[in-house]
């Protein structure tokens, strides 16, 4: 299948590559850009593991084609910590609250929580639960994750 040029900004850097029209943004980032932090838990838009930010909005990258991101600004989990490696408040809270075990769902949660708190810096518990209901975690029972969102909201 013919490949099309894709030019986008990923974590602040310009990326120019090609992709088949059917290649998902998730696969493009993982395989063409070497950014394997974006994980695939279902590839049908249900689990949220592949969540990243496109033009600032939380998006499931398994449901978007790379060519649809042409010209857009993408942030992945690799672009969340400070350049010196300092964890973002959300990442630090996840660590403090034991919000991750295997870590497979974690990038999706970091991205979803980052977007959630940016849009609603002081969410209620119900708003947090509602906002994260599209992200699945099979290890933590969500206890540490929910605690982390509260902590990140309080310290922000």
């Amino acid at each position: 299948m013919a490949e099309l040029p894709v030019r986008l900004t990923v974590n602040g850097e310009t990326v120019e590559k090609t992709a088949e029209p059917r290649m998902t943004l998730a696969d493009f980032l993982r395989e063409r850009c070497g950014l394997t932090g974006t994980h695939l838990g279902c590839e049908h838009g249900a689990c949220g593991a592949c969540t990243l930010l496109v033009e600032g909005a939380a998006v499931r990258s398994c449901l978007m084609f790379a060519v649809q991101a042409d010209g857009l600004d993408v942030t992945t989990v690799e672009g969340i910590a400070a350049p010196d490696g300092t964890l973002s408040p959300v990442q630090a809270a996840m660590r403090d609250c034991h919000g991750l075990q295997c870590g497979f769902c974690t990038p999706g949660f970091v991205m979803s929580i980052t977007a959630l708190l940016r849009d609603n810096p002081k969410p209620t518990d119900e708003e947090i639960r509602e906002g994260l209901s599209g992200n699945f975690c099979r290890c933590t029972g969500y206890q540490g994750i929910l605690a982390a969102v509260h902590q990140a909201a309080e310290t922000a």
Binding site: R30, L35, T36, G37, T38, H39, L40, T76, V77, E78, I80, A81, G85, L87, Q91, M94, R95, L100, G103, F104, T106, P107, V110
Partner: peptide
């Protein structure tokens, strides 16, 4: 946690 929170874990698909 450090590697897993920043997208630098190494899972088999990586």
């Amino acid at each position: 946690d450090g590697r897993l929170l920043t997208g630098h874990g190494t899972f088999v698909d990586d």
